[in-house]
Nucleic acid binder design. Structure first.
Lengths: 112, 112
DNA sequence: TCCATATTTCGATAGTTGTCGAAGCATTGG
DNA sequence: CCAATGCTTCGACAACTATCGAAATATGGA
């Protein structure tokens, strides 16, 4: 993961509403959550939510897909793993935990 | 670690010069690095460097101590571990790597 | 004491970010 | 084809952030 990309990912998560949204998406797993549902759960106007989701998408931390009228967002676990890997390697003394633990959706956790 | 504190830590790291400075501090270990040395290594004016170091300190990611005329900054591994723990628990599907791996200064790594 | 060194604080300024209503676009149902 | 729904884009504005020179503060040595 390039430093530039790391900065964007960290910036994306370094905001109250975006961190909260991302947590919800991680909990939701592959199934994802619609933009409107996130807006309602976080009590944020749709246009603001859209702005924040765009930032998360730009950082590569979430993916989006249309499903009928809704746009469903999902956490990108691979991107989050990359970020964690970078932080572990470069900001944590270099002890890697990605060798023996990866980040997975909670749905996989339960079945694993 | 409180969400508010997480946001501050992420914000602190979400900046080119600060991320670079923190990486250098992590590499340096307990010994730390003087503010002026960081400024020179990163090619940033002293006043700018001071501003960034204050942000890292405010986020609790670094500690400072005076040593003669210099102010020595050191990475706070415990704070970084807390951050990693929060991210692992809340943004990563909940698979914890802090159970079997902690973040330590590179000096400890070599001797461990 | 006086000067040099190391760093921070202050102040001005440019740029970026967050907010949110209004308007626009895509999709579905009548 | 029209209206309703779901979401995004646009535009304006306030708030925050980064930058950096100049001045202030702290320390150590002559």
């Amino acid at each position: 993961m390039k430093p530039d990309c790391v900065i964007r990912a960290l910036s994306a998560l370094a905001q109250e509403h975006r961190l909260a949204a991302f947590r919800l998406l991680v909990q939701a797993g592959e199934q994802g959550v619609a933009a409107g549902v996130l807006a309602e759960k976080l009590d944020v106007p749709p246009s603001s939510m859209s702005f924040h989701l765009a930032q998360l998408a730009n950082a590569g931390l979430v993916t989006q897909r249309r499903e009928s009228r809704s746009i469903i967002y999902s956490a990108d676990y691979a991107a989050m793993n990359s970020l964690m890997g970078y932080l572990t390697e470069n900001c944590c003394g270099g002890i890697s935990c990605s060798e023996n633990a990866e980040c997975f959706p909670s749905s996989q956790r339960k079945s694993a």
